[in-house]
């Protein structure tokens, strides 16, 4: 049960954004993608989620080619949290979360209500439900979108082999305590059976919570493996063109 990405290349106007990227995102795992700005992380996530088609290479979800999966079925096996978060009209928080809820053949009110209570507890946002989304702070908006991304995977009406949650820098705008809270929820979700594919910037956070890490630089996979395998000073320094030191005893990265 996994997403298999094979030899992905993506070129825009003669500029190679991704070069022969291959990796595997398994269920029950947090797979973190790290790398400098402009290295192609978001593009890779957009290809894996099905927004754009690669020029070469294939993406398979549990042995099915991604382009053979209808967009409705895609919504049932993976949810995506991107960086955009603006909404023009004055929706309530509850309505925004509800947008993530996928309808089965029939809309069963209790199912949605239970999922809403669950996600509200998990993300600790139940007190915001009746507020206007546009009056929230940037961090609160993130959390609401995160809850929407989670609830999209909560309707058990659909039979899927596995489910995946993909997140593009979900911790941007969050203070350290909320950052930790979010990543802990993801850890729990991976233990519940979800596959998590996440773009992160914080090296320490990625080290402590990931099962797999990939470093990407200039569109190429630079290193891939468990955090302990790839967190080496020479690899990190090479990826970021910066002197990065890694204290093995307290397991902390420092670079200044």
């Amino acid at each position: 049960m996994s997403i298999e990405i094979k030899n992905i290349s993506y070129t825009v106007k003669d500029f190679e954004i991704l070069k022969e990227v291959s990796l595997k995102i398994k269920k029950n795992e947090i797979f973190s993608l790290l790398g400098p700005n402009g290295s192609g992380k978001s593009t890779l996530l957009r290809i894996v989620s099905g927004d754009i088609q690669p020029n070469f290479g294939t993406v398979k979800f549990d042995d099915t080619m991604l382009d053979k999966i209808s967009i409705i079925d895609r919504a049932r096996i993976r949810s995506v949290m991107s960086q955009s978060q603006e909404i023009i009209y004055d929706f309530s928080v509850k309505e925004v979360i509800e947008m993530g809820w996928l309808e089965g053949k029939e809309f069963v009110t209790e199912k949605f209500d239970n999922a809403l209570i669950k996600v509200g507890d998990e993300c600790k946002i139940s007190h915001l439900f009746d507020k206007s989304f546009n009056q929230l702070s940037g961090g609160e908006k993130r959390k609401v979108h995160f809850a929407r991304t989670l609830i999209q995977m909560y309707n058990k009406d659909f039979e899927t082999k596995s489910r995946y949650i993909m997140l593009d820098e979900p911790t941007a705008n969050l203070d350290i305590s909320h950052e930790l809270q979010l990543i802990k929820i993801l850890k729990k979700k991976s233990q519940e059976g979800f596959g998590i594919f996440i773009i992160l910037h914080d090296l320490n956070l990625a080290y402590h919570f990931s099962d797999k890490v990939a470093f990407i630089k200039k569109g190429k996979i630079h290193a891939l493996g468990t955090p302990n395998e790839v967190y080496k000073e020479e690899i990190l320094s090479d990826v970021y063109d910066l002197d990065v030191s890694f204290d093995k005893t307290i397991k902390k990265i420092s670079y200044y």
């Binding site: 995506v80 023009i88 947008m99």
Partner: peptide, 20 residues
Amino acid sequence: SRKLDLLQLGESEAYRLGVD
């Protein structure tokens, strides 16, 4: 109606939620 609601999240978000 529902699709128009989803569209308010942005076109790519709505697409990811299964809207053609």
